[in-house]
Amino acid sequence: MIGIIVSGHGNFASGLLSTVKLIAGEQDMVIGIDFVDGQGSVELKNNIKDAMNKLGDEILVLTDLAGGSPFMNSVLLKQELTDKKIEVISGTNIPMLLEVVLKRDDNDMKELMQLAKMAGTNGINIFELKEKQEEDYNSDDGI
């Protein structure tokens, strides 16, 4: 089973995982790592590395923001831990996380990454209020 790490600024990770738990129940091999005020980048990197060591050899890291500390440290660890297959994705949202958690048993890493991207993108919608159209009513067309 592919291990999943969710990491982001503030309580991003714990917030997303609490939502996943509410919708899909408790998930095995999923670890959330928050990057909270007062933490340094070294502590964050160590926390991500510890999680990677707990999850095995195939790990998908889902982060909040490309270029942010959770993303950058995950990328650095991908380069350092060459004995593991680690992939890193930014822009994580609930549809993306649910998709990877629920479909990781049936897909390899490459397929799972594509599903993640698709679900994340498709999960973004803009609500537009549409005008109610008047129905043509002709009183001459009665029964």
Rank of each mutant, 00 (worst) to 15 (best):
E58S: 11
T92C: 15
D28K: 13
K78Q: 09
A66Q: 05
K110D: 12
K84T: 02
V6N: 03
T19S: 15
S74Y: 00
I23K: 09
M109N: 06
L60V: 09
E135F: 09
N53P: 04
I2N: 09
A66M: 12
V42L: 12
L60R: 08
V20K: 04
N46P: 00
P70S: 10
I31R: 11
M96W: 06
S69K: 06
G8E: 05
E135S: 13
L97H: 01
G32A: 06
E128P: 00
E111Q: 15
L16P: 13
H9F: 01
P70N: 08
Q79Y: 10
Y137K: 11
M1N: 03
V61L: 08
S14V: 08
H9D: 01
A13V: 00
M29A: 14
L17G: 06
G25P: 03
S69D: 01
L98T: 11
I31E: 04
F35V: 01
Q27G: 07
S90V: 04
V75W: 05
K49M: 09
V42N: 10
I48T: 02
V6P: 06
I59S: 05
L77P: 01
Q114T: 10
D105H: 08
E58V: 05
T82W: 00
L16D: 11
P70F: 11
M1S: 10
I31F: 02
T63I: 09
A51I: 03
M96I: 04
K78R: 12
G56H: 10
E80S: 15
K117T: 08
G32I: 06
L62K: 06
V30K: 09
L112P: 03
A51L: 08
